[in-house]
Design a protein around this nucleic acid. Structure first.
Lengths: 146, 146, 146, 146
DNA sequence: TTTT
DNA sequence: TTTT
C-alpha cells in the first residue's frame, strides 16, 4: 500500500539501456551503498560492508541515465521496491529478484566528461548537474525485456 | 551512503523468531505490498499485483514482533535495504537476497486476539495498537542465523 | 533536489475542501503524529508529545480526501515538504509555513460510517479501505486559495 | 507514529552551534531545496522555486556539522519532522515552526577547504567526504536553547 | 539565505 | 561491480 525507497550510492558499472517489445526504453544499473560504520569499527580496521542494488528506470529518464551516468558516478534514487519472480530454467527452482524502480534519479556529481565518445549533454543546458532525470512512468504496460 | 525504505503491507505468514549463536533474537516475516492500480485498471478487472518483501527485525522488537504480529496483520516498516549474497550449494551459483532490516515496525491494526495461546500483551499497556515496537539495533556483531 | 516525507497520523479535524480561482480542488487537513516514547518514558508517566502537520492534497485526491476522511481517521501520507512565505498583515512580519504536499494518501482504517450526512462511498467499491486516493498533480499552476 | 523526512539541498548560511543549559550541543542550519521543474518550465524561463528548511542536529553530529559544513555545501539529510509552538511575545499570537531533526547528515561534496580558519578535519581521516556524521540522539531531555 |  |  505504501512503498518508498531512497538510496544514495555509486554505479558499479555503466548503465545498460534496453527496449521493451513495444519500444519503451528501460535502463538498469547497479549501485553500491556503503553500510554505515561506527567510528569504532572504522578505527578497528573492520572491513567496509557494501550493499548492491539494481535500479530500473523507464522512458525518458532511462535514456537520460544511459546517456549521462557512468560507472563510479554518485546518484540519489527515489522510487519503489519491486519483486520479480521467475522459474530458473536450469534448476527448475523458483527465484525472486528485488529491484528499485526509480521515480527520480539525481546526479550528485558533475560528470566532468562523457564516458563514451559521442555522449554529449544537449545544447542549451537541457541536462545538467543535480537535475532530475524526468518523471516516472508508473504504469508500464510492457514487461521488462529481461 | 543513504539507505531508507518505508513499506506498509500485510504479513503473509506468522513471524519466525530465531536466535544468533550468541543468543541475539532475530525475527523475520514477509509482507505483501499491493502495487497501486489506476482506477482504470481496477475497472477493467486487471488482476492485482502484489510485491513480497522479507522483513528482518532484531533484539527487543524481534521478540515483540514474534509475540504480537500474525499472518494477515497490517504493519508499517521503516528501515534500510540490505543485500546478502551466498553460493547456492545445489547449483554452485552465486545468489543474492534483498531484505528490509527494520528500525521500527508499527502495528496498524489492533490485534483483537493473540494468534498463539499464551500470547498476551504485557500488563500495564506496555504494548498497544499503533505503538512502535522498540528501537533498532543497527550494529549486530552476529550474522543472520539462516 | 530530493524531497520526500512519509507520515502516519490521525486527522485532528475534518478535512477542508477549497478551490483555486480556476477551479482546481485543494483539500487541507492536519494530522497528529505521536513522537516515539521509550518504554521508560511511558512507565514514568511522561506526557505524550504530539507533532501536528498540515497536509495539502490536490485535484481528485482532494475530493476523495474531503469525502472519505474525517476527524480521528488514521492515514499514511507520502509526499514532499513545501515552505510558503508571506508577510503578516497585522505585524508586517515575514512568516513561513511548512506543509506536506501529499502525492498519495492512504486510509489505514475502514471508515465504518460517513462522518457527514450524504457522504457515501461510490457504488462498485470505487473507494475503499487501504486504497490510494489517486495520483498527485505535481504541477499546479494556481496558488493556494488561502 | 511514523515520521520520516529525506532531503537533499544546500546550506544557505554557515551552521550555528549552540548548547542546551545542560551542555548538549545542538547545531542548526537551513538548506535550500529546489522544487523540480519540468523541462517545459525551464525552457519557458519560469523562475526556479526554492523551499527552505531548518535542520537541527544534536550531540556529536552537531559538532561535526558545525566543523565541516559551510554555506553552499550540498548535504543529504535523513530525519524526522518536528513541530514547535510558542507564543510570540510581541503580538501574543501562537506560532508554530516546523523543523527537520536529522538522524544522519551526509556531506555530498568534498569540502575542498575549511571555510573558517582553524577548521581542520581530524588527523587519521576521522571525518571525510561522504561520511555519516554520526548517530542521532533521539531523546533529548533538554529543550532547544532558542 | 544556497548552488549549477 | 563503485567510491573516498
Amino acid at each position: 500500500m505504501l512503498n518508498r525507497v531512497i538510496l544514495i550510492g555509486r554505479l558499479g558499472q555503466d548503465p545498460e539501456l534496453r527496449h521493451t517489445n513495444s519500444g519503451v526504453p528501460v535502463c538498469t544499473f547497479s549501485i553500491a551503498v556503503d553500510r554505515p560504520q561506527s567510528s569504532q569499527q572504522r578505527q578497528s580496521g573492520a572491513q567496509k560492508i557494501t550493499d548492491w542494488f539494481t535500479i530500473v528506470v523507464w522512458q525518458k529518464q532511462a535514456e537520460n541515465a544511459a546517456r549521462y551516468l557512468a560507472k563510479g558516478r554518485l546518484v540519489a534514487v527515489d522510487g519503489r521496491l519491486q519483486s520479480r519472480s521467475w522459474t530458473d530454467q536450469q534448476s527448475g527452482q523458483k527465484r525472486t529478484a528485488i529491484e528499485v524502480v526509480a521515480e527520480t534519479v539525481r546526479f550528485l556529481e558533475r560528470s566532468e566528461q562523457s564516458g563514451q565518445p559521442g555522449d554529449q549533454a544537449p545544447a542549451g543546458g537541457g541536462f545538467s548537474y543535480g537535475q532530475e532525470i524526468s518523471f516516472p512512468d508508473g504504469e508500464n504496460p510492457d514487461d521488462l525485456p529481461f
